[in-house]
Simulated scan of single mutants.
Amino acid sequence: MKKITMQDVALKAGVSKSTVSQYINSRFEFMGVSTKHRVEAAIKELGYIPNHVAKSLKQKKTGTIGVIVANILHTFSTEIIRAIEDECERNGFHLFVCNADDQPEKERSYIDMLVAKQVDGLIIFPTNGNNDYYKQLKTAEFPIVFVDRVINEPIFPTLLLDNESASQIAVDQLAKKGRTKIGLVSTSIVQKVTPRIERIMGYKKALASHGLAIEEDWIVAEQREEIGSRLQRLWDSGNRPEAFFATNDLALIELLRFIKKNKLVIPENIGVIAIDDSPFLEMATTPISVIKQPTFEIGQNAADTLLQLISSKNFEEEYEERRYRPILVERESI
């Protein structure tokens, strides 16, 4: 891959090299908004790595790694971070943790910052939007491990749940209890986040395997703040599911909020099963059945894999995804 230079960015954006330099160093005082956007777009399209970042890639080990999570509000994320930290501590490494809020621009900014701080490697829950930058880092032989999400090309080791199997387990459990009208609640799929897409696909396949109808109106996949109102419209329509499968903990919280608002009783009025566990689910008035992810195993394996990459610098062209088996925890909600 040809090394992208500041001059390449300047030509692409139609500006001077000094303007690109000003942008990289966050000197925007005399830069027009349209110029700023052109430079930003050129950097992103070309996958340019600033010199200060490129230089830091060649420095000696610092005993630190960076973790960039997509959304730190998920219990899944915090448990994996804890497992990574434990494993790094055992091996004499320290952690920087950053939250990208599912924003590619924020993720890239954190990557730049962490690499400039000379971390020895990164564990990333990748967003959709920085694929070219990932390739540049791969070319520079910078150690990275992906967790929870896949990108178009398997250029780094990737560890995640067998999401379709998790959905199959959820639907199997509801069907076993005689539930034939099964809805799904998810956070938004606009950004094509791997687990959300795969869990919805798995849900549809599982319904088909039981000969159950797939009602598109029963699939509620919205921004978190919109889930409640969307569920309410569905409920008020009269075409109601008998049970819901919540594909993550944040979707489940909004589902339970809706259930409480409508004074519904679990499981008498509505069955519930979800992916991801939390202590409060076991202690709820009606304990909620869940499909757990082996978060501590994933976190430990992610840290081990990264530390091996840091030590060996032995990069493969492509990596197979490592999928983990979901774990059913049966309670009283279905």
Results as ranks from 00 to 15, higher is better:
residue 196 R to K: 15
residue 50 P to F: 15
residue 314 N to G: 06
residue 214 I to A: 10
residue 220 V to R: 01
residue 285 T to Y: 03
residue 85 E to F: 08
residue 171 V to S: 07
residue 279 P to Y: 09
residue 19 T to Q: 11
residue 261 K to E: 13
residue 278 S to K: 11
residue 307 L to M: 14
residue 191 Q to Y: 08
residue 65 I to K: 01
residue 242 E to H: 15
residue 323 R to C: 12
residue 118 Q to F: 07
residue 230 R to M: 13
residue 117 K to G: 06
residue 308 Q to P: 00
residue 6 M to K: 09
residue 128 N to C: 05
residue 183 G to Q: 09
residue 53 V to E: 01
residue 286 T to V: 09
residue 251 A to R: 00
residue 276 D to T: 09
residue 225 E to S: 08
residue 318 E to P: 01
residue 8 D to R: 08
residue 240 R to A: 11
residue 2 K to S: 11
residue 164 E to C: 11
residue 247 T to A: 06
residue 5 T to D: 08
residue 187 T to K: 02
residue 282 E to K: 14
residue 220 V to S: 04
residue 74 H to A: 05
residue 126 P to G: 07
residue 248 N to Y: 05
residue 8 D to S: 06
residue 146 F to S: 00
residue 77 S to C: 11
residue 50 P to I: 14
residue 117 K to M: 14
residue 105 E to R: 08
residue 196 R to E: 09
residue 145 V to D: 01
residue 105 E to T: 04
residue 161 L to Y: 02
residue 241 P to C: 03
residue 77 S to T: 01
residue 62 T to R: 15
residue 182 I to W: 12
residue 151 I to S: 06
residue 183 G to Y: 13
residue 284 A to E: 02
residue 225 E to M: 12
residue 17 K to I: 14
residue 231 L to K: 00
residue 120 D to W: 03
residue 185 V to G: 02
residue 161 L to H: 00
residue 19 T to N: 10
residue 54 A to S: 14
residue 153 E to F: 10
residue 183 G to H: 11
residue 215 E to L: 06
residue 72 I to Q: 09
residue 47 G to F: 04
residue 130 N to F: 04
residue 100 A to Y: 06
residue 77 S to W: 01
residue 190 V to H: 15
residue 52 H to R: 13
residue 51 N to W: 11
residue 181 K to H: 15
residue 57 L to C: 15
residue 82 R to T: 09
residue 95 L to T: 08
residue 21 S to I: 10
residue 326 P to Q: 09
residue 217 D to G: 08
